[in-house]
Design a protein around this nucleic acid. Sequence first.
DNA 1: CGAATAGTGTCTGTGAGACATTATCGT
DNA 2: ACGATAATGTCTCACAGACACTATTCG
Lengths: 300, 300
Amino acid sequence: MNLKEINEVTEEEFLKNYKPYDYERPSLTVDMILFTLDDEEEKDLKKVPEKVLKVLLIKRKNHPFKNCWAIPGGFVDINENIEDAVYRELKEETNIDNVYLEQLYTWGDVNRDPRMRVVSTSYMALVNKENINVKAGDDAADAAWFTIKKKIIKTEDTKIISQIILENVAEDIKIVYEITENIEIKGYNKNSKFEIKLIEGDRGLAFDHVKILNYSLERMRNKVQYTTIAFSLLPKEFTLMELQQVYELLLGRTLVKQNFRRWISPMVSKTDKVKSNRAYRPSSLYILNKSYIINEIKNI
Amino acid sequence: MNLKEINEVTEEEFLKNYKPYDYERPSLTVDMILFTLDDEEEKDLKKVPEKVLKVLLIKRKNHPFKNCWAIPGGFVDINENIEDAVYRELKEETNIDNVYLEQLYTWGDVNRDPRMRVVSTSYMALVNKENINVKAGDDAADAAWFTIKKKIIKTEDTKIISQIILENVAEDIKIVYEITENIEIKGYNKNSKFEIKLIEGDRGLAFDHVKILNYSLERMRNKVQYTTIAFSLLPKEFTLMELQQVYELLLGRTLVKQNFRRWISPMVSKTDKVKSNRAYRPSSLYILNKSYIINEIKNI
DNA sequence: CGAATAGTGTCTGTGAGACATTATCGT
DNA sequence: ACGATAATGTCTCACAGACACTATTCG
């Protein structure tokens, strides 16, 4: 044993005497982007109601961004895993329990929050509206589902201009953002910079929450193509037409009926129930074959 | 104006008087998983050298996990964006500058670090070894490239057993972990739990770094299929055989030559240079067409 | 010349896209 | 009967997989 080793402390001793340096640390929060599906009003009984995508927002009752709408979330406790925090917050603000929350991204810019340094890890879930029951949390004056749409306005080589439209008819709120995505090449990857501008609505969303919503829409559009998350938006039993509507909504393009059915057919099973409350031939209800949740599905 | 509104403070006043509550906060670090490609020794001039994937690890010179190998990284400063921190650390430990670092995941379990609560956001980059020059940072006694391989041992319905093998011949180190992935269904998503066991080597990697490496290998395998990141591992000019080797290595399966060439052909352009230092017909060097970096490529 | 890779040609089956047709419901 | 969707059928074209063959280099 040489001199150096004699002078060394063991890991046990080191940890016993360890005092964290007294430097400042960021606060850590979690955000949950909850998406759900809803039927648009349709009086004509001969037509299938259109589906719309909705996102859960809360109205902040405290400063900063008082009275602005925001993505629900909260602080992570020092003795709490991040995962546990997000499931706790989810349970506090809705009654949801058995949902899969997927970690999306961690937002760590210095000036995200005007109060202090706050780093936020965002999670996303797709839920069936019938299963949940939203209640406002501590920091929320109100909670409401907003329809969310992303419209592509213009695409160039390295620039994409789009709009994010958030709307709640009951509250009479419409918020429209214009998002300019500038694509840079860094090495062999693309790296986008976003410019965000509020173009309609009295006030925008709190913090950098538009950016987070935009990111989660993109992630969802990708995931929908090779997983079965789209099914989370529908009840256990659904018609193939409803399922197709969901895919069209999430992908942002129309699909040819028979081709969609051919693609989806190995994943679903027909039940002996039918849905028949409208002025056309009733359609069979289908369920998802469980094995397809585990294995990645073929690209649509 | 009602009584409530009279009593309200403005956001400006609120922020001026805001004192952060004195609760404990986690420390925040970044980890960088750097992958590169290397030729395996091949004396037979008639054969093309095999490619191996390598990952950069540093040897910790302080407690905890003193003398264990670890993923390079460091603390995020309170006045520093997370992104800036990871690029700063990258520059400090290597001389890399113009690489794209992709955020992977944020690890937030309470007991990740025996000293205190540390939350870590990990980033990944694929680099060409020729462009970089690794130097050990402050907390690192040493830095070295380890070959990394993931072998599937057994796959069942909801359980996958694999091994992660890390090796450095110069340092005479071989570390093997067995990873058992238990797949659960949560809603319409899969949710994996991992059991990790060191089965070869004097000591394992520091902290939860095997878990992070495992995650990044999976992410890379996915990304390789619809982006051009594989090209980051090669020099600007490469042969189609080298490129195929990279794809085979990252995907973990062999590809048929002509099919691979047909698939890759729209993405690359032949230069008028050739590579000819071995005992067989020289091969043309190719370059990637820049437009394919931006647009997503077709699935392989 | 031999042993290896470079590079091209081509057959085949699968499956996506598109279009067409019949069946069935409520009004 | 009408207007809508349900459900099935089928033609075509693109392309992935597989295999075969020739060309070229260095030792």
